[in-house]
Design a binder for these strands. Structure first.
Lengths: 136, 136
DNA sequence: TGCAGTATGGTACTTTAGTATGAGTGTTTT
DNA sequence: AAAACACTCATACTAAAGTACCATACTGCA
């Protein structure tokens, strides 16, 4: 987090220097406008990359949400999506049952269906495959 | 992937339109240069966000790599890091043993140590915690 | 009304996972 | 050399996870 803030600072400084340089170069013609434009554009692209990282960070740290479109493609039912979300959180079948107020038996049924829909043998493999297809 | 390419296209078109608009506005003075500059900068930031997404995608799809610094902080041994990498790939203890040419017993020993170092009860929980602290 | 889909749950069983403990073999450090 | 550490492996458990099969109940749709 501090690293990203630091990069933001560096970029801001570089950008200001470039702007100053462009003012200077207008009078001295030491650089072409094209080169300066490319440099400034690169700075803004850098800002975009950092902003994108910040946006990603929120979604991975706080709450995990399934990609609804992908869930539909995989024919996940509502309950299966809920159970899978708990799996990704690292919960056991028993804990999932307590969270969703259903028996461990029911959880096992859902898990079994989830695994076959994701073509996985284990829940860890299911997590990996879900990441690969963008479900999570 | 197609979605990202599509967004790139849209951004490129918007950018070209803005550039044309700026040429036009120089003669007509219908927009201030500041507004146009902000708009064009926004486009480049958008490009940056997309590029960042593409860069992230490669790292999650292809090969998973542990954050060496975090691994050291957690006092992971070399072998434990290797075993954990296989866990994240969704492999079973038996499969991990075959990959690393060690017995399933040894894998279990490593896994047990990994779990206690990550303060996790299950490998799924270990994966989740590893993501939370930035190990993966 | 009957069918399809979803959600629920149980039994019984097999397979993985995980723990605890002990032990042998190297390598590095004191 | 002895201690400390990492890696290896085994045995013997207990605990989860996962499969297969069956059954009930509710909802929406043809």
């Amino acid at each position: 987090m501090r690293k990203i803030a630091f990069r933001f600072g560096l970029l801001a400084i570089a950008l200001m220097l470039l702007v100053e340089l462009s003012k200077y170069s207008i009078t001295t013609h030491s650089f072409t406008n094209e080169i300066l434009a490319v440099a400034i554009a690169s700075m803004f692209i850098g800002f975009g990359v950092l902003i994108g990282k910040l946006l990603n960070r929120q979604s991975t740290d706080e709450q995990i949400i399934l990609n609804e479109t992908k869930a539909q493609e995989l024919e996940f039912s509502t309950r299966e999506s809920e159970v899978f979300l708990e799996i990704v959180k690292g919960k056991s079948n028993k804990e999932i049952g307590e969270s969703l107020f259903i028996s461990e038996s029911t959880v096992k049924t859902h898990v079994s269906n989830i695994l076959s829909k994701l073509d996985a043998k284990r829940r860890t493999e299911a997590i990996k495959k879900a990441q690969a297809v963008g479900l999570i």
